[in-house]
Amino acid sequence: MAVGGHSDTTLDEPTQVLEFTVGDERYCVVLDSVAEIIDRQLSRSLPDAPPHVVGVMDYRGVTTTLVDTARLLGVGSNPEASRVIVFDTGKEEDDVYGWLVDEVYRVTDLDPRDVDDSPFGDERTRGIVRTDDGLVVWVDPPTES
């Protein structure tokens, strides 16, 4: 089954995803893309940064870009969110970044039959997941901050 916007991605078996909230909305990302979940750290702002970049923080000795996930996903702005999902692209040391989120909800197995194609036509949105307690937007983290 092709998943919204990613016709080259086929899901034949359950995939583990991490669910989180940004404001009142629930999202998920593939768990394999997550390095760690941490409490928000002290950060420094960056001059001339894109609007969705809050600043940088130290994560295990690596300067890590901190992203206002609400702004990145187009659902407002919450630069004061308290949790950080850390992603590491694995390419280079500077390819580590953190998404600010309000709450990390759970890790769950995603059944491909529960995924509907994304109605947004947005490259970051893989689909909408139907769960027992509502809808979850499945997003891809960017390959760079």
Rank of each mutant, 00 (worst) to 15 (best):
V62I: 10
K91N: 01
E123C: 03
V139K: 13
E36T: 10
D109M: 05
D116H: 13
H52G: 01
H6Q: 15
R124F: 06
V3Q: 05
C28T: 10
H52E: 12
D94L: 11
S33M: 05
R106V: 06
G5L: 09
C28Q: 10
R26D: 12
V34G: 00
Y27K: 13
Y59E: 03
P142I: 03
R130F: 04
T9V: 08
T131A: 07
S43Y: 12
A49R: 02
G5D: 00
E144I: 07
P47S: 09
G61P: 02
E93N: 02
Y27D: 11
T69K: 11
K91F: 08
I128L: 15
S118D: 06
V101P: 08
V101C: 12
A49L: 08
G121W: 02
V107K: 02
D117C: 04
V101Y: 15
L46G: 02
L42P: 00
T64L: 05
T15W: 00
G121F: 06
T65K: 08
E19R: 15
S77V: 11
D48P: 01
P79R: 00
K91G: 08
K91Q: 14
P112N: 14
V96A: 03
E123D: 07
K91A: 13
R113P: 02
V3L: 07
E36R: 01
A2W: 03
E80D: 15
D58Q: 12
P112A: 07
M57Y: 00
D12T: 07
T69N: 08
V96N: 00
E36D: 05
G61A: 09
Y27R: 03
S7E: 15
G4E: 07
V136H: 06
D114F: 00
P141V: 11
L72A: 14
S118Q: 08
D114A: 15
W138Q: 12
S43E: 11
R71T: 10
I37K: 01
V75M: 12
V96L: 02
R106C: 08
H6L: 15
V101L: 13
I37R: 06
G98W: 01
H6R: 15
L11K: 02
V30N: 14
G121D: 08
V56W: 13
D117Q: 11
T69H: 03
E80L: 11
A35Y: 04
R106D: 10
V129W: 01
F87E: 08
V101G: 12
N78T: 12
Y59Q: 01
P14V: 03
D133A: 09
G74D: 07
A35S: 14
Q41F: 09
S33F: 10
G74C: 13
D117N: 15
C28N: 02
L46N: 08
Y59V: 14
V17C: 05
E144W: 14
Q16W: 01
D116N: 15
V30I: 12
P112C: 10
D140K: 06
H52R: 10
Y59W: 13
Q16M: 06
S33D: 14
T15A: 03
L100D: 03
I128P: 03
N78I: 05
T64M: 02
G55D: 07
A49K: 04
T143Y: 01
T63N: 08
T9W: 01
D24Y: 09
E19Q: 14
D94A: 10
P112H: 13
L100V: 10
Q41G: 09
P51T: 09
A35T: 11
V139Q: 02
D111R: 09
V29I: 08
V86S: 02
D109F: 02
Y27H: 15
L135T: 13
I128V: 13
E93M: 14
P50Y: 00
G121E: 12
